[in-house]
Design a protein around this nucleic acid. Structure first.
Length: 431
RNA sequence: GCGGGUGUAGCUCAGCUGGUUAGAGCGUCGGGUUGUGGUUCCGAAGGCCGUGGGUUCAAGUCCCAUCACUCGCCCCA
């Protein structure tokens, strides 16, 4: 029985061409994050189980994570997300860190579930968080940063849209404005979250099922549907319009539009599945009809750091997966042609390996990435090899060249050959 | 956990209503004379048709099971 060459289910091998794409995406993420003053951090891939139990249900952790017991009987989890980890790190140094704290990371995350398009068991996810700012300026900065990242990848505003809402607003609307109890609120919230993916009739049926007969008779369904039709903050019912969260939403939108970020809108159906969000939540959607999915998701979670026994720290952050980004870039034709990291290929003619070392070392000292053909193949085959590797320049070294101290550099794209010493050719290779 | 789809060469696939030694393109390897690639020409290797069972004179083709992959649902970090 031969061993399988396939990678583990739902996980990927990164061959050099795949790794080049990943390096490209990560480099742009890092560039923009650092342009906004964010610092990179990292942490172990294993975390104790209980930091996830604290904020979600036990079932999710057991069924959807890779968890096991170590040899010392400790229950551990391969991290499924970064937010609890970064909250733990901030809590550990709560007193000594300088706020506002701006941190980012690109962790590899694992979840145990059935793979499907755009959703694997393993992915890399950019996490950006700002700690210590309670007001809308934090939301503004985070969304502004996301927007800058999209632009850095060459995306136009028309290719994506940011949708904003507030969990506090929705909690108040469901419990106070509509008068639903806790269970009903929770169920209806989940339904609103999935509303866009559901047929209208099914949605209505499920809403009916989620609320009590008494509430139905009181006209709650009609009130809810009217509320969900609201497209602008200014059109909210008076009872809701005065909420602090609505003001926060409005000032976030104002700041963004003043900075010419106009593809951001209020969307009352954005809920986010997770319970740790405390106020404003947002998602970024691809506007392409074939990929109408959420790519970036985030919001404010003021309570998480406090779970570690220190005074709470207001926090806004988001996550952005590498798979969804790659899908987006591909669909919008935003991927550049990736080139090899190697600048020049050395073709050796005859048994000159010993004498060739000096010029090769000189090239490397000049900062040039050099790969040497060691196969001893015919010169023509060495050219083939260089071409197959996608290399554009080949330097020929044989007895004649070593004696003369002059080498031949061939550009495979133009077929042009240039003769000269290493110093001259070095400049040419770099150009 | 629940549904749908698909398994034929390294890859993408063709194989009509079951009928002899299973095909193509791309890729790989070799060659077109000894220091020049990519284009072109010639040639070669490579498949228990996912696996197991069944129907039949005869199965890549039909039936059942199983596994794998894939797309949805559930869930969404």
């Amino acid at each position: 029985m031969a061993l399988s060459t396939k990678p583990y289910k739902g996980a990927r091998d990164f061959y050099p061409e795949d790794k080049r794409l990943q390096k490209y995406m990560f480099a742009k993420w890092r560039t923009v994050a650092e342009r906004f003053g964010y610092e990179e951090y990292d942490a172990p891939i294993l975390e104790p189980l209980d930091i996830y139990l604290a904020k979600t249900g036990e079932e999710i952790v057991n069924e959807q994570t890779y968890s096991f017991e170590d040899r010392g009987g400790r229950k551990v989890v391969i991290r499924p997300e970064m937010t609890p980890t970064v909250s733990r790190m901030v809590a550990a140094k709560r007193q000594e860190l300088a706020y506002p704290l701006r941190w980012y990371s690109i962790p590899n995350l694992w979840r145990y579930e059935r793979p499907q398009r755009g959703r694997l068991r393993e992915h890399w996810q950019l996490n950006v968080d700002i700690f210590g700012v309670a007001g809308a300026s934090a939301e503004y900065e985070i969304i502004n940063l996301v927007d800058s990242m999209f632009k850095e990848f060459g995306a136009k505003s028309s290719m994506y849209e940011v949708k904003l809402n507030s969990r506090k607003l929705m909690d108040y609307a469901l419990s106070e404005y509509l008068g639903l109890n806790k269970t009903q609120s929770h169920d209806v919230a989940k339904l609103i979250d999935r509303m866009a993916k559901m047929e209208r009739s099914i949605f209505l049926k499920r809403v009916d099922a989620a609320i009590s007969a008494k509430a139905r008779e009181a006209g709650v369904v009609e009130k809810l549907l009217a509320l969900l039709e609201t497209k602008q903050l200014s059109k909210l019912p008076e009872e809701l319009a005065g909420l602090e969260s609505v003001k926060e939403l409005q000032s976030t939108l104002d700041l963004l539009s003043k900075n010419d970020i106009t593809n951001t809108t209020f969307d009352i159906t954005i809920m986010r599945g997770f319970d740790y969000y405390t106020d404003i939540v947002f998602e970024v959607f691809d506007t392409h009809p074939e990929n109408n999915r959420s790519m970036v998701a985030g919001g404010r979670y003021d309570g998480l750091v406090g779970l570690f026994g220190v005074a709470p720290v207001p926090t806004v952050g988001f996550g952005w997966g590498d798979v969804t980004l790659a899908n987006f870039l591909e669909l919008h034709h935003l991927l550049p042609d990736f080139e090899s990291e190697t600048d020049v290929y050395i073709a050796l003619v005859g048994d000159v390996i010993a004498d060739a070392q000096k010029p090769i070392a000189q090239l490397r000292e000049a900062g040039i990435n050099v790969a040497v053909e060691l196969s001893g193949k015919k010169l023509g085959d060495q050219f083939k090899a260089a071409d197959k590797k996608g290399l554009k320049q080949v330097l020929i070294i044989g007895q004649d060249e070593i004696k003369a101290g002059a080498f031949t550099l061939k550009n495979l794209e133009t077929s042009k050959e240039t003769k000269g010493d290493i110093k001259t050719l070095s400049k040419l290779i770099k150009a």
